[in-house]
Design a protein around this nucleic acid. Sequence first.
DNA 1: CCGTATGACTAACATAGGTTAGTGGCAGTC
DNA 2: GACTGCCACTAACCTATGTTAGTCATACGG
Lengths: 251, 251
Amino acid sequence: MSTPLLQAETAPSGGGGALVEKLQTIAPLPKGDRDALAALSADAREMGARRNIIREGDRPDHVHLIVQGWAARYKLLPDGARQITAFLIPGDFCDLHITVLREMDHSIATLTRAKVAYIPRERMEALTARPDVARAFWWATLVDEAVLRSWIVNIGRRDAYEAIGHLMCELYMRMKNVGLTRDHSYELPLTQEEVGDALGLTPVHVNRVLQRMRSEGLIRFARGALTIHDYHRLEQASGFNPNYLHIDQKV
Amino acid sequence: MSTPLLQAETAPSGGGGALVEKLQTIAPLPKGDRDALAALSADAREMGARRNIIREGDRPDHVHLIVQGWAARYKLLPDGARQITAFLIPGDFCDLHITVLREMDHSIATLTRAKVAYIPRERMEALTARPDVARAFWWATLVDEAVLRSWIVNIGRRDAYEAIGHLMCELYMRMKNVGLTRDHSYELPLTQEEVGDALGLTPVHVNRVLQRMRSEGLIRFARGALTIHDYHRLEQASGFNPNYLHIDQKV
DNA sequence: CCGTATGACTAACATAGGTTAGTGGCAGTC
DNA sequence: GACTGCCACTAACCTATGTTAGTCATACGG
């Protein structure tokens, strides 16, 4: 029996998958729109863990959508250091509007085995011709931007304990929003090094902080899954305020 | 004689101002578009330094554009710490698409005296009906996002010396792109505390680093203006690569 | 002109987090 | 069923940056 790296296949919205689930956060979409979006996930490609989806300098002519599994945006520094700037979960686009820019200024790689849909430009144009879809894409783009701002605060002004807690809360809310949590648990298939690369910490220090959180009974984090034993306390301790996710739902 | 906090009024693009200058980075705009954009700056309001333009929780129904002077996006933490997540210079929108989201998840304040244009929603819609303008707005949004990613790398994986140098290079390129540099100098009306709030550093440490840069003959930074004596060396030392600004111009 | 901010700057000391160099467990593989 | 590689985990030590508590110069309002 292997660790369940992939997400539950039972998409809660009845086949539409994470993308439809996510894009209906702000407003329900007409059936036609839902079907058109759900169709994107149909012929996704399987990819192994730790494979590049796109690399800095690439000029892709199609858009990538994470259907299943996890991926990360990252930049490499000359000295080999890596900074992860985003975690991508099912329903997230990798490069929604890359065609407006000349080329990628960062890379994206899978973290787990994953299913990734490749969507040709014309197909995206057909989708954005639907006003509700276009608006939902805008919403998703703006939330991505808000998450980036929130990460800057996390790295710049919170200590390691708060930052790690904050990240756990954010991922909990995002996973919940696409139906991938159960109680206060979710698949979190990150190594301690990857957590460190996202928060500007070393794996050694990430480990220290995790030990402390465990000893305090706050969380359980093992075998690629996180359980938050006391969500309220974690939120408090890390100064997490979900308003920047613009979800407007209850915990 | 007072310190010249405001930017040169002589907009290089013949009256269109920084916005037109910036939006033509990727492609020239038709005269009609240029005029429509330039008209936005016409009746901007004067604001004092350190005044809020919008605050977290606000639901503005119009868009703000920095016409002259500097502003900053920021978030405040419960303990009073501040993290600046963006510096806004002439030609930058504060909240281009706020109407898609419910409310602001961060605040924006002027840093210097500034001229800020208030643009009603209908007027923005009329502008985005012009395809080239819509595309240019997209470009601006995506570059803003790329800058956020770059800041995450800066704060997460570069030391203070590199991070400060990187910020100076970025602002140099952005100011140059709207015609607000002369040789390798530009108005940089930031206090050392504001630089620290952007990079997650204390003013004491910012001062230490600046002293070092000065002693090395790299820069001159005084009275609200920065001169980079050796741009190439600064770029090297800070690992700056302007590709993420998507400007495609020479230094 | 004098008082009051504000911001640049410094020194002495404290610490969160980095570095280096491991050990040990476990999963996959030939 | 031994090898291999990855990852969690630890210990001892180090340093970049934070903290506290100032001094000093300049700008501005009255």
